[in-house]
């Protein structure tokens, strides 16, 4: 396991370096995408639609950073199966390493984006409280869930290359059924139970409440969220583990 950890770190870090080394702006590119998205949504929803969500700028920024982590992690995971083709074909190592390192790679970006979020929050004079620490729980749950989904997608991608198109559509839909640019208050009560099946909605909503509005979800709700994340993770891991035996000949 220690050796695997060495390998995971090395792959994640070297891929991260390669991703941004080719350009002069380097790591700043990683800030650009969420900031641009943020700017667009802010103009549309705060200025044109006049959203009345409190701390709306920080509200969307946090949601976008978390959602962007999912999008990046899954894309890197799938892409890495092709990029690391030669490795799969000629070296034996635990195949899980590839997906874990891809997700860690995306997590580095997410962490630097979150740092930027807090700088902006300071500038906007957000009222900080200890509830902010709940963000660690949110990010952990998000990571486990994303890892599970990345396992599923990477395993399928080796055999079915058009899974990327299907996933792209899912991401589009997912974005709008998750409280990123609007608050959960807009959802009619009778659909709430349906809406709350989406684990991303649960995680991001809890993060919003903790960081911006100083409220924590009750333990029972957190356990349900964690339960969903762990189930997705186990399904993903099992599928990947089973399929990984054939990666070397199928990729």
């Amino acid at each position: 396991m220690i050796k695997n950890w060495d390998l995971i770190k090395e792959l994640a870090w070297s891929d991260f370096k390669v991703r941004y080394k080719g350009s002069i702006l380097g790591i700043f590119w990683s800030f650009l995408k969420p900031i641009l998205l943020f700017a667009i949504f802010y103009v549309v929803f705060a200025i044109i639609f006049k959203s009345d969500v409190e701390n709306y700028a920080l509200f969307i920024l946090l949601g976008i950073i978390m959602w962007n982590f999912l999008v990046e992690a899954t894309n890197i995971s799938m892409n890495n199966m092709l990029v690391k083709k030669e490795l799969l074909k000629s070296i034996y190592f635990s195949r899980e390493v590839l997906v874990i390192s891809s997700c860690l790679n995306a997590l580095i970006t997410a962490a630097s984006n979150l740092a930027l979020f807090f700088i902006i929050a300071l500038i906007l004079k957000l009222d900080f409280s200890a509830h902010i620490l709940f963000l660690f729980v949110s990010m952990t749950l998000l990571f486990v869930l994303t890892l599970g989904i990345s396992y599923i997608l990477a395993a399928l991608y080796v055999k079915y290359r058009d899974i990327t198109h299907i996933w792209e559509v899912c991401v589009q839909i997912g974005f709008w059924i998750t409280p990123i640019v609007y608050s959960i208050g807009l959802i009619p009560n009778k659909y709430m139970y349906l809406y709350m099946i989406n684990p991303f909605a649960r995680i991001i909503n809890d993060a919003h409440n903790a960081v911006l509005y100083h409220t924590l979800p009750n333990v029972y709700q957190i356990l349900i969220t964690a339960g969903i994340c762990i189930i997705v993770y186990i399904i993903g891991y099992k599928l990947y583990k089973y399929r990984s035996k054939y990666f070397a000949e199928e990729v």
């Binding site: 050796k3 060495d6 390998l7 080394k21 030669e86 490795l87 000629s90 070296i91 190592f93």
Partner: peptide, 21 residues
């Protein structure tokens, strides 16, 4: 295998070494 063109020979030595166990 696993060599990264964009990284230095030193970085690649570490990467390759870890890959080979």
């Amino acid at each position: 295998v696993g060599f990264q063109d964009e990284l230095t020979a030193r970085e690649n030595t570490y990467l390759y070494g870890i890959l080979t166990g």
